[in-house]
Nucleic acid binder design. Structure first.
Ligand SMILES: [Mn+2]
Ligand SMILES: [Mn+2]
Ligand SMILES: [Zn+2]
Ligand SMILES: [Zn+2]
Lengths: 136, 136
DNA sequence: GTTTAAATCGTAATGATTATCAATTAACTT
DNA sequence: AAGTTAATTGATAATCATTACGATTTAAAC
């Protein structure tokens, strides 16, 4: 997904177009990896020295909510990345050094034959952690 | 695993037997669910009004390190549970209301045929979240 | 250009986790 | 049983991510 597509999606949902949002989206579009909130803040401060953490988190959560970003918890911090829209539901290998990801086109839920009768499944997480070829 | 077995394991590793450790282990042995650090603190304060958070965390991490406990991140907080030693490597359904778990005797890594050549896999996480029959 | 609700900023509060260090204690030695 | 010592704990403060909030600004609709 590119920045304009994302901003279009936001417009349709009634969100305003702001310079800060554009900038946040640019950061994510550029890199295929999970990024922590403080890294986003740091990056944005180049253009907007006075950005508030409130602005960062509010937007990250909002963008996750409208499925533009994906979130996960890495090393006790929330990390975000641009959602993959080139294919369907899938999972990721995540490099514990640089945060780059590789898609895993396999969902273990499809293979679950455990008896989960009586259980209400709301969500699931399958992530593989390690070193990518560049960091290995 | 029971408290005495766990304490024996600690002894073999050179850790001392303390009342606080016994108490922490008792809590975990009693319940088949993920518990947050602050809940452990609260529980232990009944017997040791002055326990320090340092004692709680140090022990939880140490017990995880020697494979007596398992840890995971739930809702932004570290949670711990007694490791399952009745069967081999497996995963869990986790109730998002009460923290109780159900073993899932299936590991998606066994079914991974993705090409991960050049990637160094260190770890993986597969968890299913939802409501258990009691909380449903 | 006016209006208005959304968004941002500046700043403070919260809450979990980590760190420090003096005092205590379990386990070993004599 | 008393002495020794390193591990452990308690009291407390620091750190760090995240959340909260009122005042100000701004995007976008009219
Ligand atoms: Mn992907
Ligand atoms: Mn289990
Ligand atoms: Zn990498
Ligand atoms: Zn439950």
């Amino acid at each position: 997904m590119n920045v304009e597509t994302a901003l279009q999606k936001l417009k349709e949902k009634g969100y305003k177009r702001t310079k800060q949002r554009e900038r946040i989206l640019e950061i994510f579009v550029k890199q295929d990896q999970y990024i922590a909130a403080k890294e986003i803040l740091k990056e944005i401060q180049n253009d907007f020295p006075g950005v508030s953490y409130d602005t960062i988190y509010r937007n990250l959560y909002m963008l996750t909510d409208v499925d533009i970003l994906e979130a996960t918890e890495l090393g006790g911090e929330k990390h975000f990345r641009l959602g993959c829209d080139t294919h369907g539901h899938h999972h990721h290998f995540i490099c514990t050094t640089c945060g780059k990801t590789k898609s895993i086109e396999f969902c273990p839920m499809d293979s679950i034959n455990e008896n989960l009768n009586g259980y209400d499944v709301e969500n699931h997480k399958f992530e593989i952690y390690g070193k990518c070829p560049q960091c290995h």
